[in-house]
Design a protein around this nucleic acid. Structure first.
Length: 490
RNA sequence: GGCGCAAUCGAAUAGUGGUUAAUUCAGCUGGCUCUCAAUCAGCAAACGGGGGUUCAAUUCCCCCUUGCGCCA
């Protein structure tokens, strides 16, 4: 692995066929952490040779996801770099050069077999229980035969000739893996349309971009021996490899749309903090070896090493992500919390911008009440709707509380007393309510529960008296009277 | 079908040739409390199976099983 004295360079190389999903983000994160830990370079490369499925929108989505998570790249799209271009479709000439070279030295050859022919022969191999290997029909075609085939209008693909030997992969995470090249096919490196295949383009790019360590999902393990053969055919030093375990859905299958939110940007929309998402996915397949759960970005960088990556797949657990997010949310100052919350309130139509000083102060108070009770901003909108609108949701089990005995009388009495309060402060409200409970020989909760339901439509939430203060006297009275009115009708 | 990778509480991870196998999330019980969170105290919960190696295996080796991936 003669790359000892070279600068450390890693890359993340997504295909722009969709958004940046959790698994890709984790691969990007590990590469990024590795580069930052060892002071290397982190390169972003877009593998868009699949022109049918690649879109500019997907490129943007991936870039947006990376930016939101704070995974900045040293070279790549929008940034450039001396190893560019960083889009594979802009590198076609480069691949062509290497294909020519392999052809020239006899390490690759033209193949005129059609897809149908191939499929037929493969079927037979399959039926015979043999590995699906190209039968080398076109390996020794004479020039005349080739000319004849081309005259028939056949466009050749180009295959790499597999050497007959064991291929050993030294993986930094999986250890030594051995593959028998006899079981590997002479795979296509350039399709008949002139586009290089994935396995070929990756290798050429990694060579040209001086990548010193290839870190990627372990679904690529089977590709690795094929890629190594290309390095060897070209007589170029093989980089190091590190195959990291994948992230699975709760049913232990590959993470997909079926599992709900798999795009990192969906987490932004749901009101998660990028730090929390990063912290969580860092723990999927990696651990510091200590009991520490919460890591700042800086701490992740400091602690990240490959030997602490586990070697089995991990299941994505939304609940734990929620917990992480709540931890980060709680640590936010009220000011910062409100600042992040405002766009969500705005989108929900709960507030109008710009905000007055006073309203902003009030928002901070509300935030401090809700902070520990809410796990993401989307949930804030759901649990805290009554702070902003009259049409707040009313829980089914909340209605039952209002149907209990004496509730109407209690609320009527309460309204009278609340109207008397001059200074609408939590302490004053509480002493008024407590006093009323005493005089009427009631338990505090007999007043508190129906009041909460009337004010918020919910059975859960912040302490009632701070909630009442935050809502303001008028709204308290209005909502209580509304409940009384409803009870009168029944 | 061929090849490969993997296997510790429900989930994520620690950990060890001899341990009461640990932590966090989730779950449950209790304290606090007007509810819910938060918080505090506690409970429950795992080494996939079978062979070896060894005085001793969850740990090392092999096989099986299961899961996952790649190939088409």
């Amino acid at each position: 692995m003669g790359i000892k004295n070279k600068k450390l360079r890693v890359r993340f190389a997504p295909s722009p066929t969709g958004y940046l999903h959790i698994g890709g983000a984790r691969t990007a994160l590990f590469n990024w952490l590795y580069a930052r830990h060892y002071n290397g370079s982190f390169i972003l490369r877009i593998e868009d040779t699949d022109r049918m499925r690649s879109t500019p929108e997907a490129v943007k989505a991936i870039l947006d996801g990376m930016k939101w998570l704070g995974l900045d790249w040293d070279e790549g799209p929008e940034k450039g770099g001396e190893y560019g271009p960083y889009f594979q479709t802009e590198r076609l000439d480069l691949y062509r050069e290497f294909v020519d070279k392999l052809l020239e030295i006899g390490a690759a050859y033209y193949c005129y077999c059609s897809a149908e022919e191939l499929a037929g022969r493969r079927k037979k191999q399959f039926a015979d229980g043999k590995p699906a290997i190209y039968d080398r029909k076109c390996l020794n075609l004479s020039e005349a035969e080739k000319r004849q085939l081309e005259k028939e209008g056949k466009k050749p693909a180009i295959r790499l000739k597999m050497p007959d030997r064991k291929i050993v992969v030294h993986d930094l995470i999986k250890g030594r893996m051995e593959f028998d090249s006899k079981l590997l096919s002479d795979f296509v490196i350039e399709k008949s349309d002139g586009i290089p295949t994935y396995n070929f383009a990756v290798v050429i790019d990694d060579i040209l971009m001086d990548i010193s360590l290839v870190m990627r999902g372990d679904d690529h393990i089977s590709n690795t021996p094929k890629q190594i053969v290309i390095y060897q055919a070209l007589d170029i030093a093989i980089p190091e490899f590190a195959h990291i375990p994948m992230i699975m859905g709760p049913d232990n299958t590959r993470l997909s749309k079926r599992h709900g939110a798999t795009s990192v940007m969906e987490y932004q929309r749901m009101g998660f903090l990028p730090e929390a998402v990063l912290n969580y996915i860092a723990h999927l397949g990696w651990s510091s070896g200590t009991n520490q759960e919460i890591f700042s970005i800086k701490e992740l960088i400091e602690n990240f090493t490959l030997d602490k990556i586990s070697n089995h797949s991990a299941i994505f657990d939304m609940e734990k992500l929620n917990w992480f997010n709540n931890e980060y949310l709680k640590r936010l100052s009220d000011e910062k919390y409100v600042e992040m919350l405002i766009p969500f309130l705005k989108d929900a139509g709960y507030i109008e911008l710009p905000l007055s000083e006073e309203k902003e102060r009030w928002l901070r108070k509300v935030a401090s009440l809700m902070k520990s009770r809410v796990r993401n901003f989307k949930q804030f909108l759901e649990y805290g709707d009554y702070f902003f609108i009259e049409g707040f949701t009313v829980e089914d089990n909340a209605v039952k509380i209002l149907e209990q005995n004496r509730v109407r009388g209690i609320l009527e009495h309460l309204v009278k007393r609340l109207k008397e309060i001059k200074d609408w402060k939590e302490e004053n409200i509480e002493s008024e309510v407590r006093e009323m409970a005493n005089q009427l020989n009631l338990k505090g909760k007999q007043i508190i529960h129906p009041t909460r339901v009337s004010l918020s439509g919910k059975t859960i939430g912040p302490g009632l008296f701070s909630l009442m203060e935050a809502l303001g006297k008028e709204i308290n009275i209005k909502r209580l009277e509304k409940t009384i009115h409803k009870l009168n009708k029944n």
